[in-house]
């Protein structure tokens, strides 16, 4: 299985957008997203292990939250767009059902 925790991969279309411009964020973490529906070679069910939530917050306020179920592919990928209004620190946090937390903060400076 893939390594459980790693640096998230983040790509941001423009870190210094004009006010009103659309910013695209691509974010991906390494995670098996084990469905809990598969069996191993000994016919034992492989327990579910998935990232359950993703949250993007700025100054404590939730901008976007994503609730994931086993249908989401391994190494969950998310791309979202928002309208830049003010300079912010975007905090992105992934939480898995086994308590694993991955967090990163990206700065967007509106010019």
């Amino acid at each position: 299985m893939a390594a459980k925790s790693s640096k998230p991969r983040i790509w941001i279309s423009n870190r210094t957008p004009n006010s009103g411009a659309v910013v695209t964020v691509k974010a991906m973490v390494t995670h098996p997203m084990e469905t809990g529906l598969r069996k191993n070679a000994h016919s034992e069910v492989i327990p579910q292990n998935i990232v359950e939530t993703f949250e993007c917050t700025l100054a404590g306020e939730t901008l976007l939250s994503w609730q994931l179920h086993p249908a989401i592919s391994q190494n969950p990928y998310l791309e979202f767009k928002f309208v830049a209004r003010k300079s912010v620190d975007l905090t992105m946090r992934w939480v898995a059902d086994d308590g694993l937390r991955i967090e990163t903060t990206e700065t967007i400076t509106v010019t």
Partner: peptide, 12 residues
């Protein structure tokens, strides 16, 4: 076959 694309381009 299981295919996983890593299509966020990066230096690492």
């Amino acid at each position: 076959q299981k295919q996983i694309d890593i299509d966020i381009r990066s230096a690492d």
